[in-house]
Computed example of a mutant assay.
Amino acid sequence: MKAEAWLFTGVAGFFAVTATVYGVFAHEPAGKAALVVAFLMSALVAVFCWAQHVKRGPRPADDPSADIASGTGPLDFFAPASSYPLLTAAGAAVLALGVVYGLWLALIGFGVLAPGVAGFVFQYARRG
Rank of each mutant, 00 (worst) to 15 (best):
K2L: 07
A3T: 09
E4P: 01
W6N: 13
F8L: 08
T9S: 14
T9V: 08
G10P: 04
G10D: 07
V11D: 03
A16E: 08
T20P: 08
V21H: 12
V24F: 14
F25G: 13
F25Y: 15
E28I: 12
G31S: 09
G31E: 13
K32F: 14
A33P: 07
A34F: 14
L35I: 13
A38H: 12
L40T: 09
M41S: 15
A43V: 03
V47D: 00
F48T: 05
F48W: 11
C49D: 02
C49N: 07
W50D: 00
Q52R: 12
K55D: 00
P60T: 00
D63A: 04
D63Q: 04
P64W: 07
S65V: 05
A66K: 06
I68F: 05
I68P: 00
G71T: 00
T72M: 02
G73E: 03
P74E: 13
P74R: 13
L75C: 02
F78L: 09
P80Q: 12
A81C: 09
S83H: 13
S83D: 10
S83R: 10
P85D: 07
P85T: 05
L86A: 15
L86R: 09
L86S: 11
L86H: 08
T88F: 08
A89W: 09
A90V: 12
G91Y: 03
G91I: 04
A92I: 07
A93F: 11
L97G: 15
G98P: 05
V99A: 15
V99E: 10
V100R: 09
V100F: 08
V100W: 10
Y101M: 10
G102M: 03
W104I: 01
A106Q: 06
L107C: 08
I108P: 06
G111C: 06
V112S: 01
L113T: 03
P115N: 01
V117E: 02
A118I: 12
F122S: 03
R126S: 14
R126M: 09
R127L: 14
G128W: 08
G128R: 11
G128S: 14
